[in-house]
């Protein structure tokens, strides 16, 4: 029974997740235009839900779809499907597939193990890269107690926050020299905000949770999430220095410093877009408008409707899936 349950569950999760990914890929480009006009805090939340949507909803739909089988195995709903009379837990629609052929399942399981193995190797290599990068940063940086950052002696201009669980801010000595006191305060407030919010960790978790998305949609969603996170940190920097225009001017100054002092990245992979610079500056110039209450209520209502829809469709889903 448990093998049927597992087979049905895996098949249904991939099916529902794939279907939702397809819907996201079709619908996201037009939804994105509306999304970009929303305030960054709310947008980041919507993007996080969208990123893990296919996986979470796939699992949720599967769980609710399998509920009658679970009930049947406990003698509570055996009458709805003749196949349940034998006490086998399954999703009715997938049942013929489950019984199709052992070869089909062997190939499928082999593929899945292969993909999982590849994913695990990739994850391990990425983990090693992060560790090596962190180790190198630890060796080349010195704690600057005055600014409460880690300083790297370099003639290049860069500043960034790195680290998943205990993130820290690293800044080059050249950039400290180039920035005025208030500009440095803007940069540090922005980066400290990334550290407080654990943005790198969130991004990593969401990039794993969004694996069921098509890769182009996933890339776009992650870039939009990055933009929202940057804009949130810009907003927190504004709160720190109480001058929106100073933050905007500092952004321009840093981009100019980067253009002057950093080596060109591989032109095949590097975008010449200045890291959403225009969108960030426009957000800083416009007066922030509070999120309309109707949007919040409508979003909550939609989410509630979606959840209750899945719950109420338990039995039909069971047969549909």
């Amino acid at each position: 029974m448990s093998m049927h349950f597992l087979q049905s569950g895996i098949l249904a999760t991939f099916f529902s997740g794939g279907l939702l990914s397809l819907l996201s890929a079709i619908g996201y480009p037009s939804f994105r235009r509306h999304l970009l006009s929303l305030p960054c805090h709310f947008r980041a939340k919507v993007l996080a839900v969208t990123l893990c949507g296919p996986l979470l909803l796939g699992i949720l739909i599967t769980l609710f779809g399998l509920l009658p089988s679970w009930m049947a195995s406990h003698d509570e709903a055996t009458e709805h499907c003749a196949t349940h009379a034998n006490g086998m837990a399954h999703l009715c629609w997938f049942d013929p597939l489950v019984h199709l052929s052992d070869q089909f399942w062997t190939i499928g399981a082999g593929l899945m193990v292969g993909v999982l193995g590849y994913g695990m190797v990739a994850a391990l290599r990425f983990w090693l890269r992060i560790r090596r990068f962190q180790a190198a940063l630890n060796l080349i940086s010195e704690y600057d107690a005055r600014h409460r950052v880690y300083r790297i002696d370099s003639e290049r201009a860069f500043v960034f926050a790195a680290g998943l669980f205990a993130p820290r801010v690293f800044i080059s000595s050249h950039l400290i020299e180039q920035l005025s006191g208030p500009q440095l305060a803007v940069v540090l407030a922005h980066e400290q905000s990334h550290c407080r919010r654990r943005d790198m960790l969130w991004r990593l978790c969401l990039s794993i949770a969004s694996l069921l998305h098509f890769s182009a949609t996933r890339r776009q969603l992650l870039r939009d999430l990055e933009l929202a996170q940057e804009q949130i940190c810009d907003t927190e920097a504004v709160q720190c220095v109480s001058d929106r225009l100073l933050v905007a001017e500092t952004l321009i100054k840093i981009v100019r410093q980067l253009n002057l002092s950093m080596p060109e990245a591989n032109p095949a992979i590097s975008a010449f877009n200045g890291s959403h610079i225009e969108l960030r500056i426009r957000q800083l110039l416009e007066q922030p408008e509070p999120l309309p209450r109707t949007t919040v209520w409508l979003s909550a209502l939609l989410f509630g409707l979606l959840l209750s829809g899945v719950v109420s469709l338990t039995m039909p889903l069971h047969h549909l899936l």
Binding site: F126, R129, I130, F133, F158, V159, F160, A161, A162, V187, H190, E191, H194, D199, M200, R203, L204, S207, E226, Q229, E230, C233, L251, I254, V255, L258, N259, M262, E264, A265, I269, S270, A271, F272, N273, G274, S275, H276, I277
Partner: peptide
Amino acid sequence: DSMLAAFIDIAARS
């Protein structure tokens, strides 16, 4: 990008 959060995307150019 996946390892850090920079004030400005260091790989990008304007």
